[in-house]
Design a binder for these strands. Structure first.
Lengths: 342, 342
DNA sequence: TTGTATGCGTTATCAT
DNA sequence: ATGATAACGCATACAA
């Protein structure tokens, strides 16, 4: 009945129901007893008015926050997007809303800008997707007063920010062992950028090689994209001693596969190629890609779970690991006889 | 110096600077003249205290909102994720923050739950990624009082919600004409779910076929995933009259390509396969995928631009189209001679 | 069990 | 140009 586009507030509900402000508030929060009669009247008024609580006002007065910020370098790439999806899913189930803040680069300006705008909103806590340097820096820039957890690409130092992480060192180790068991004398590695030394896929790869007494070839550094994989693999295609290549992700793997194939090296007859992640396209690849599956959605869910636990229990939760699994498909095989005997 | 984990407010700044509340507010908003002397003192206090304005309190009293909600069916799939990225980028540049609300299904419960939780926060406006039925329904569920714009997969009816959209009918048309020009007698279509009749990729495909006087084969319906493409294409692989297949997206295309190849039909020698989107993996495919590129990031940026314009000008903006481009690569070719003469 | 009064951090209005 | 004060919508301590 208001003249303007008036958004109904708790006062309007109270008026319509013929009760006081506080009664309405109590009915809505449900934390105090209210007689059935009044409760019914209030609920009717709420429905009729289409009343929606104002979260801003709520958090202002109660200090209770219902939004969590997710800081991420990007939202497109598979791992990031899937992690975000998992976080959102868990957050929504728990009654939280997620605010997404992409941090363009590790430039302190970009970081503090992202942090400042996000923190000006009432946050219950923050999650940073720490798959890269930007994530590491963002983590460092967040105030200690805010509950912060991380979705990490690899285990972080203990005593640090609580985090859920991918046991990707284990994945790299398993994939390398598998390749070695096929008869390859060593395995090369086409790597994504590392966030931490002595951890991650590359670390597991190295460990497997050392244990087997195989030579550890120099790591070939790439970025994340298929083109980067293609370009970086070029320098390897002419070396016939390379018979197995472990790639930091599936995109690198398909880029590398193309590079080899264009040079007349067949996959897997001449070179075995193994990826990481198991993106949806991997199993449709020709040949279907052998890869280390990482469940990013689960990682996201767990990460939010950590934050939720922290908020509920009031103390920092224990870290949580998600284990990758090797999916053997068509892009890997024993080295061809001719090479083996060569 | 506060005993507790006290978050500094405008009062603390005022006290430290030795000025009144209002002066601090004025310095921060910058909308009123303040003497340089006081301004300097305030700025020093702000820096020293690490003061951050409380957006909740601001929007509560001023009615000015700085967050926009994005409703989407999902955040993983390429088109959605890239659109989100574009939206976020533009929003951040304009000083807005984005809240992501994924809507699980078209179930009214899921929709109203998502809408309610998002709308309980102070929103400047909302954006719905309307690539599917869920998006269409969500759009319908949003209150008319809120500025809402859409990022659409195809042009919507006029007079409707302002939207930026992919001219994908044009893309379907161009791709089909291209295939026809290669000498294929007709083109089959493996479709993603349609949101609207008489629009979209399928509509353009149909138009090109009709114009050329070619027969219009029944549409083969698929979902979005590579496996769906693979499964749905199975029934086509044994039909030698099929020499060209236009797929609703790249994932379908690679699934279909595998299905054909497993059945001994070579790509492109026996069947030409064309995708849609130009996802990063497309150019690395073997053979590299001919596809219709759609710039989702740009779509996202434009969509936010629409909302921004609406908010600034106070009136609904005009729709905005993003044009796809056909990228010819290796997966398409003229039909083989044997078939042509058969 | 219900109602009244106070205040959360900020901007806007009104004085000075 | 600057300061005092009233709201914004809601939760809660306190009074009834």
């Amino acid at each position: 009945m208001s003249l303007d586009h008036h958004v109904p507030g708790i006062v309007d509900v109270a008026a319509k129901a013929g009760v006081s402000l506080s009664t309405v508030s109590r009915v809505l929060s449900g934390r105090t007893r209210v007689s059935d009669a009044l409760r019914a009247k209030v609920e009717a008024a709420v429905a009729e008015l289409g009343y929606r609580p104002n979260a801003a006002a709520q958090s202002l007065v109660s200090g209770r926050r219902s939004t969590v910020a997710v800081f991420a370098r990007n939202t497109i790439r598979y791992g990031y997007a899937a992690t975000l999806q998992g976080i959102e899913e868990a957050a929504r189930a728990a009654g939280y809303v997620v605010l997404i803040a992409v941090v363009e680069s590790a430039d302190p300006d970009d970081i503090s800008r992202a942090v400042n705008t996000a923190l000006s909103h009432p946050l219950a806590g923050a999650i940073v997707i720490e798959f890269d340097k930007v994530g590491v820096e963002t983590l460092a820039a967040l105030p200690p007063s805010l509950p912060v957890v991380a979705a990490a690409g690899a285990r972080r130092a203990a005593g640090d920010t609580p985090h859920a992480f991918l046991e990707d060192a284990a994945g790299g180790y398993e994939a390398t062992r598998y390749l070695l068991s096929l008869g390859h004398s060593t395995v090369h590695h086409l790597a994504i950028p590392a966030t931490r030394p002595r951890s991650g896929r590359a670390w597991g790869w190295r460990k497997a090689l050392l244990e087997a007494g195989a030579t550890v070839p120099p790591i070939v550094q790439a970025s994340y994209s298929p083109t980067s994989g293609y370009d970086s693999a070029q320098k390897l295609t002419s070396d016939p001693s390379i018979t197995a290549l472990l790639c930091g992700n599936d995109e690198l793997a398909i880029g590398a596969a193309r590079a080899f194939q264009e040079n007349g090296r067949r996959v897997p007859e001449d070179v075995s190629i193994v990826g990481f992640d198991d993106q949806p396209f991997a199993r449709m690849w020709m040949p279907a890609l052998t890869t280390v599956r990482q469940d990013f959605v689960d990682l996201g869910r767990r990460t939010f779970g950590l934050l939720e636990e922290w908020l509920a229990q009031g103390r920092r939760p224990a870290d949580s690991a998600v284990t990758p699994t090797l999916i053997v498909r068509e892009s890997s095989a024993a080295p061809s006889q001719e090479r083996a005997t060569a």
